[in-house]
């Protein structure tokens, strides 16, 4: 499938001389939710800014829907909606006026039904005649989402959408994202909350210090880098890990009543049956077992510190 966004050899040097992006290559597939994960200052907002036309690139090129974002900016920008990281809103405009403005700015004829639908989905309908400055921060964020959706974009960028956002808005927002995705909209979100990427994304790109460290299918990423732990609740407490089991990466937990086995799903597929057999031979019985997967957070911290 042709990627809907294709970034090739992209670099950005700010006027200050700071090199915020270094030779970025990235493809986003139509209809997917792509999470760009990275610590503060990694270059996420800069990358989005370039794709959306807010910043000029220093080197490299970007295509959106197969078209160059500089030469064919009208076509590419029409496809994109952007919810910025900061609460950049008007003050004295009403919610309705600002959302209508956004639609007009993107060259679309007024469509009251669509605007109403967007406002209702974001629980903004009864605030539509309020001046934006009278709204809370969470409500302002909703307004920004409504503005980004006003022209029915095929691609939606959400730059740190849940930073400092209350639970209810988070829930509403993910609901909107799910609906958009179901209707075929491609979504790119940046975050440094790993659980968000873990919950929502199909694919994850990790960026650090202006470089893409890795791009991977989420499930694949979890599988590849995910270490698993298996915890056995023992029938009888152990004081030490028996010598005959020293070939396994084992430790004791819960005062000796848990035996914890850490293994890498990628490397060995046979260690669990072997361990269980060895446990039986050593006469160690267990009542129950659980397995837990290493979270993206652990993976992420691992990756970023490796790079340093």
């Amino acid at each position: 499938m042709q990627p809907i966004i294709s970034v090739a050899n992209l670099s950005k040097t700010y006027a200050s001389g700071f090199r915020a992006l270094k030779n970025i290559n990235l493809d986003v597939q139509p209809g997917e939710i792509f999470a760009l994960l990275g610590p503060n200052g990694a270059g996420k907002t800069t990358l989005i800014g370039i794709i959306c036309g807010i910043l000029n690139a220093s080197e490299g090129s970007v295509t959106v829907g197969g078209r160059d974002i500089v030469r064919d900016y009208r076509a590419t920008r029409s496809m994109i909606g952007l919810v910025p990281q900061e609460l950049f809103t008007e003050m004295f405009e009403t919610v309705w006026a600002t959302v209508t403005f956004s639609r007009g700015l993107f060259g679309k004829a007024a469509n009251l039904a669509h605007t109403e639908k967007v406002l209702r989905e974001l629980s903004l309908w009864d605030k539509k005649d309020n001046q934006i400055r009278t709204l809370s921060g969470g409500m302002k964020r909703r307004v920004l989402i409504a503005k980004a959706l006003a022209h029915e974009p095929q691609i939606l960028f959400l730059d740190e959408p849940t930073a400092g956002v209350d639970v209810e808005l988070r829930k509403d927002m993910w609901e909107v994202v799910r609906q958009l995705r179901a209707s075929g909209v491609t979504i790119i979100l940046t975050t440094h909350y790993i659980d968000e990427a873990e919950d929502m994304a199909d694919r994850i790109g990790v960026i650090n210090k202006g470089e893409i460290i890795l791009i991977e299918n989420k499930a694949e990423l979890m599988r590849k880098l995910g270490q698993k732990q298996m915890t056995l609740n023992l029938q009888n407490k152990l004081d030490v890990v028996p010598k005959e089991l020293s070939a396994y990466q084992l430790s004791l937990g819960a005062g000796g009543s848990d035996l914890i086995f850490t293994y890498d799903t990628q490397v060995d597929h046979t260690s669990i049956p072997a361990l269980l057999a060895d446990l039986g031979r050593a006469g160690i019985n267990f009542r129950d077992l659980q397995t837990t997967q290493r979270s993206l957070e652990d993976i992420f911290v691992g990756l970023v510190s490796q790079k340093k």
Binding site: G53, R77, L82, T89, E90
Partner: peptide, 14 residues
């Protein structure tokens, strides 16, 4: 000053 220029710059407008 307020940052709302981002929208103008990201719009399909010359």
């Amino acid at each position: 000053f307020t940052g709302t220029i981002f929208e103008i710059l990201s719009a399909p407008i010359s």
